[in-house]
Design a protein around this nucleic acid. Structure first.
Lengths: 183, 183
DNA sequence: CAGGAATAGTTGAATCTTCACTCATGTTGA
DNA sequence: TCAACATGAGTGAAGATTCAACTATTCCTG
């Protein structure tokens, strides 16, 4: 945390300023233009986001582990439990959970093996598949949800004010829609 | 995005309110206490954080892929490049990048195979190992950093105001320190 | 309505991460 | 001093994710 670093740059986002060596001979790194390194605030915000996320995900995973679930499992269960008929098309589920179809397919296979979900073929579009919550899956989400919400509160929500939460949402909204527009 | 869900709950954080079935017979889920489900704002903030992170990481990985690097590789390179002698003890590097020693060890092995870093034994404490940037690693970070910073700007930083960035940092700081205190 | 393009989903191999151990060295205190 | 414990790091196997095919439908479009 203290000044032990050669440069004052970010550990993640990149250097704040270019190191001396880089500029000596007037090189122009990106397309002949001087890059706009991150300011101190920019860097701190970016680092805070990354650190918070890593730590948070790790902790939530740890807490869910008690119930034999990962955050990914949990996310699937919640999405299905909130859908009519406790079922979703694979593609919709992949989009909702922001992951590739391939990854989802493997994930559902694992959860199927664990008895949490089942696959059902789709009558309308015979290319399609539904992932459906089983009785066991439904019982699991009912049992686990209160604990998970408690974790999210304890490690995140309850540490912020309502205003801060509003700010967060406002700040991230354009980022999310920008990135979603890139597919 | 539209109302097609059975419950208005979060896809990630858990239900906003317990589904009807859960409450019918007066069950008391967590330790006999009614869980504090997330309010609408709380939920939106939490979902926004998660969505932003997933999308962002995916995009940054995609952008770095051009140079044959992952965000994890990049993070290691930056940390080393900012350390005196372009070197760090394995444990310190693991802490700095918030990952397990085991994972770092594997990661460094891969980067060693790619010629980006080298391992050096530590004279003082002969249990210890340094990860050191190679010439190629140093050249790589110099070449890639400007592009990566540009990505971070384009997809995140430049979409927010300075005030929002300050708010972010302020909001996350206690979360980070809370979670770090849990080891 | 034939044929090509697009869509839905799966698969296996390669890569990466996690988990439980192991090994070697350091530190402590009786 | 030396036994017990702590620390730094690595390992291999198991589990998860990515990547590039591949199959089976369905959608267009002339």
């Amino acid at each position: 945390m203290s000044r032990e670093r050669a440069n004052a740059g970010s550990a993640v986002a990149g250097w704040t300023e270019p190191p001396a060596q880089l500029m000596r001979n007037g090189e122009r790194p990106v397309d002949e233009e001087e890059p706009r390194w991150l300011s101190s605030i920019e860097q701190q915000a970016w680092r805070a986001h990354l650190a918070a996320h890593k730590l948070l995900e790790h902790r939530l995973d740890r807490d869910l582990q008690t119930f034999g679930l990962s955050v990914n499992d949990y996310e699937i269960l919640v999405n299905l439990s909130e859908s009519p008929g406790h079922r979703m098309r694979m593609s919709d589920l992949a989009d909702a959970t922001i992951q590739s179809r391939s990854r989802l397919s493997h994930q559902i296979s694992r959860m199927e093996a664990a008895g949490l979900v089942a696959r059902e073929t789709c009558a309308d579009d015979r290319r399609g598949t539904f992932a459906v919550l089983t009785e066991h899956g439904w019982a699991t989400i009912q049992k686990v949800a209160p604990h998970h919400v408690a974790s999210v509160r304890q490690h995140f929500i309850d540490l912020l004010t309502d205003d801060q939460l509003r700010e967060l949402e406002t700040a991230y909204a354009p980022v999310v829609s920008h990135l979603k527009s890139l597919r």
